[in-house]
Design a binder for these strands. Structure first.
Lengths: 149, 149
DNA sequence: TTGGTTGCAAATATTTTGCAACCGG
DNA sequence: CCGGTTGCAAAATATTTGCAACCAA
């Protein structure tokens, strides 16, 4: 399958997902999705806005933000990083990962069991010199699970 | 070692690190570091500011931000998330991780080799219901390595 | 004494929101 | 036509910066 065919397939999936969720298929939605899907550059809202403005000069930034949020809810796209609203800090330098609650934003420390070992993807070295590895597990914490019952 | 002894040890390390890097040991710096180190709540700048204001009513938010940045440079603390200045989006839903360049902020996709398997820390389940796993490798990409030569 | 650091205020950057007009189904 | 979506403008949130006074070494 060519990359164009793949893109078209994804757009069909998006249309399906919209219909299934009572959301409309608008040209803005399609364009914004295409902009994220067509490249591997992981663009930010501003970059997407700038690209689309050339075809749709009237588009506004807030539409880009709102649409990115909807696409995320539909699970058609996701954020690479920046999933917490504010920067959070940790002074525990021992290697460990984090469980981040997507509802209350609480962060829990996860330490490996003694028989576990952190594995770094073999392909990671290809891209440059590794400084550190950051593993985040996102989900709903026990406290929030209890509340929603 | 009690947790208070541990904290004092960390503060000594901070003082050392400051001296080694021509940075001064100021009461603000100590307090801000203590605030991050003493709890496991991974506070944000505002929370740190609010706590410290009770002991040091004249402290300002920008000192907190500046100090957090210095402490990060000294490798005494690090950010849990939010390591890119803007939200970045990805429409590739296949499981994969990211190499993030700490110099140019470029994001590269890392796919596992066929003999590799994504491992989730055993302890992660303890904290709640897992929705997804996000692995980031941070470092300096080949392009930036070449430039700095 | 001296240069790194602070507090203040103002600016910047990023993202969000209210609202009326618009348009997809 | 109905209600979800857009564009506009303004606001909210988070973080950064210039500058003079301050203080650690």
């Amino acid at each position: 399958m060519t990359s164009e065919q793949l893109l078209n397939k994804k757009i069909e999936e998006l249309k399906e997902a919209c219909k299934k969720n009572g959301m409309r298929v608008t040209p803005q939605r399609i364009e914004i999705f295409k902009e994220v899907a067509k490249s591997c550059e992981h663009p930010d809202a501003e970059k997407i806005y700038d690209s689309i403005k050339q075809k749709m000069p009237n588009i506004s930034v807030d539409t880009v933000y709102r649409t990115l949020a909807s696409l995320e809810e539909l699970n058609m796209i996701f954020r690479v990083d920046n999933q917490l609203p504010k920067a959070r800090f940790d002074a525990d330098l021992r290697p460990h990962s984090h469980f981040i609650c997507i509802q209350c934003n609480e962060v829990y420390d996860i330490f490996l069991e003694s028989d576990e070992k952190l594995q770094i993807p073999k392909n990671a070295k290809k891209f440059g010199e590794i400084k550190d590895v950051n593993i985040q597990i996102r989900g709903i914490c026990n406290k929030c699970l209890k509340k929603s019952k």
